[in-house]
């Protein structure tokens, strides 16, 4: 397996908190990439530190380990960490009454926001994060 299939900086397993959002840099100086690592039982959930909605740093969001849920710190969007799917937009409860008022807003055109859960391999006490398509 070519090393170019992986991001250049592996993530040491030591120091990963099982209850917190662990933010780690896995890119290089030319292409810096920050990811959030969540310890989920014996597995790891690794996503870009970038909300697919507006680009918020997900590492500053809220983690619910029981529901495997990660909430965006800017807009509160709730994502399933296992699948990456957007589970809930809590703002619909506040702004639902306004969402039919504007011609330029078409909720049917809202993208299906989804976290890209990055594939990885564990070798020698380190997580090697794979580039390319999510598993």
């Amino acid at each position: 397996m070519s090393s170019s299939n992986f991001y250049p900086k592996p993530i040491p397993l030591d120091g990963l908190s099982p209850t917190a959002l662990n933010v780690r840099a896995i890119g290089d100086s030319e292409n810096p990439v920050d990811v959030v690592v969540v310890v989920d039982g014996g597995e790891y959930r690794i996503v870009r530190d970038l909300c697919p909605h507006m680009g918020a740093p997900l590492s500053q969001g809220k983690l619910c380990t029981e529901e495997r849920k990660l909430s965006c710190p800017w807009h509160g969007y709730e994502f399933n960490l296992a699948s990456g799917e957007l589970m809930h937009n809590p703002n619909d409860e506040i702004y639902g009454c306004m969402k039919t008022l504007y011609k330029s807003f078409n909720p049917a055109k809202t993208p299906k926001y989804r976290l890209r859960v990055l594939p990885y391999e564990v070798r020698g006490g380190e997580i090697h994060v794979r580039r390319g398509v999510s598993s």
Partner: peptide
Amino acid sequence: NSYLAEGQFLLFKDDYV
């Protein structure tokens, strides 16, 4: 672009657009 996107809700969006 993300504020202007059809699927993005904004207050008074028609005025903004």
